[in-house]
């Protein structure tokens, strides 16, 4: 690797102060699994300094707060996989975390890092989007909070300024226990980027799709929602046909590209299948009482 400096932040305030001090020459290291792999083969000049925020104490931890389920940005994928709190309140998050990379990378990689890297195929994005997650960033101008969707700008581009860091992700209280599921299709089951991934969530009072959310990855410049498919489902009785039709509509909303991993056509077909499966998976998490009403 090319030479660079290293400094570890003890907390988020320290991290922001360090970023202010080093300016654009600084690069934030969260888990490091993407950053280090990039730095090793990058033709570009290295950063002056890498600011390691993985040890910032206030960026850790999974907890229930007044606002909802709070994930510190430095929570690792493994912590999400093994969290009893997540298993209970938002199991789809664990479903998405367990298919990221492999054990070794999940032990290092963080949810914040995954979101900020902002590759279209990220596995953390769709489920959080489907649960209307909100994120908080911290910078020299203070904290600002926004919906997750506003963080994503384009491939490897976020709305974060160079001196800001993502500090937490919150799944709002009203969406805890909302039936949701995540689906991924890669060329292998493990250690593969998603050709397409998808997440869905909805409530099913009286067997009717209510507040449905469908999010897609790897089929657009960023992770996206599928509003037309959501609109189609809203108010419609829960049925397999409706789920399949929502998948077909979502496929028309996807804007996939052809690359060496798959063709756009193949990816679009995958969207239809994965959305249907995600909806079915979410329905599997609907409480028995709601299910009776739906059938």
């Amino acid at each position: 690797m090319k030479p660079f400096g290293y400094v570890a932040a003890i907390d988020s305030e320290h991290a922001v102060a360090l970023l202010a001090e080093y300016g654009k020459g600084a690069k934030v290291l969260a888990g490091g699994t993407d950053l280090l792999a990039d730095l090793k083969f990058s033709p570009h000049p290295p950063p002056d300094v890498v600011v390691d925020i993985s040890r910032a104490a206030d960026l850790k931890g999974i907890a229930l707060t007044d606002a909802g389920l709070r994930l510190g940005a430095m929570v690792t994928h493994s912590e999400i996989v093994h969290s009893p709190l997540i298993a209970e309140a938002a199991p789809a998050l664990a479903e998405a975390a367990v298919v990221i990379g492999a054990v070794q990378t999940r032990n290092l990689g963080t949810i914040g890092g995954n979101l900020i890297t902002c590759v279209p195929s990220m596995d953390s994005g769709p489920t959080l989007l489907a649960l209307d997650a909100r994120v908080t960033v911290l910078g020299p101008r203070g904290r600002r909070e926004m919906p997750l969707s506003e963080l994503f700008v384009g491939p490897r581009r976020t709305s974060l300024a160079f001196d800001e860091i993502l500090i937490e992700i919150v799944v709002p209280t009203q969406n805890l226990h909302k039936p949701a599921a995540f689906q991924k299709f890669g060329l292998r089951k493990g250690q593969a980027l998603a050709l397409v991934n998808a997440a869905a969530s909805f409530w099913a009072p009286d067997g009717v799709f209510t507040e449905p959310r469908i999010a897609l990855g790897a089929v657009a410049p960023t992770v996206i929602r599928a509003p037309k498919a959501e609109a189609y489902l809203t108010g419609r009785p829960v049925s397999e046909e409706a789920m399949a039709e929502a998948g077909r509509i979502a496929a028309t909303e996807a804007k996939p590209i052809t690359d060496f991993r798959a063709s756009a056509e193949y990816r679009r077909d995958l969207v239809a299948v994965l959305v249907k499966r995600a909806l079915a998976g979410a329905f599997g998490r609907v409480t028995p009482n709601q299910k009776d009403l739906a059938s």
Binding site: Y6, L29, G32, L36, A37, D52, S54, R55, Q104, L108
Partner: peptide, 24 residues
């Protein structure tokens, strides 16, 4: 971080030693 030949255990967790700075 693809092949795992560098795997070591840090604080009880298996990690890719090639994807972690010594400083970390």
């Amino acid at each position: 971080g693809d092949c795992g030949a560098c795997t070591v255990i840090v604080d009880g967790l298996a990690v890719n030693a090639c994807l972690m700075l010594a400083a970390q």
